[in-house]
Design a protein around this nucleic acid. Structure first.
Lengths: 97, 97
DNA sequence: AAAACATTTCGTAATATTGCGAAATATTTT
DNA sequence: AAAATATTTCGCAATATTACGAAATGTTTT
């Protein structure tokens, strides 16, 4: 009687959930989904965290595939990464039925 | 220019997300949502973790309001906590539009 | 009352997360 | 080339998460 491993789906959903498991990251995604794109500097003003901390949250969201950043010198423009966002939405929808 | 705090909604969504941020907890919710209720002992066989670790995950889900456990001696029957589950579903749905 | 069963709590260890300010990097403007 | 601007990386500290086995708790059966 062997122990089954987690499925890829379960791992993927947990990963997306983890990306959204901090209020700052939820807030960032709300901002981006409202106006589609945004500069990191603008986001700072909307969140109660330091720039360096924001940067960490942004890279976590990027790592999770939920956002993408394009260099628009001298700023970086962050946008929703449509594929990842849609996949997360779909998986979350299926999960909750 | 003061820094705004997170909204209650953002905090609540992050909380539900955090509850689902581990594959074991995703798996547990899938099991429960399929068959509505389950005994802790049965779940053990479906997951690659020790009983004591499962117990911790169950209490996190309970803490988050996603499941409830009723004592059905000598076992504990875990079920989905409908209110919390529905709220999570609704909030997640709104979040993704 | 003892044995068996189901589950949790405890103690502990390893690793991850969150946060900040200072320093580093990179680009544009002066 | 220096100054200004935007952002990240580094170093660090505090706390949280995940995991396990052993021991504890509580119930039922023998």
């Amino acid at each position: 009687m062997t122990k089954p491993q987690y499925t890829d789906k379960q791992i993927a959903l947990a990963r997306y959930s983890k990306a959204l498991s901090h209020p700052a990251r939820v807030a960032i995604m709300e901002i981006l989904s409202q106006q589609s794109c945004c500069y990191s500097g603008d986001i700072t003003n909307d969140l109660p965290i330091a720039r360096s901390t924001l940067s960490q949250h942004l890279s976590e969201l990027k790592e999770a595939g939920l956002i993408q950043g394009e260099f628009n010198p001298p700023k970086i423009k962050y946008c929703i990464h449509k594929e990842g966002w849609e996949e997360a939405k779909r998986m979350m929808g299926e999960f909750f039925e």
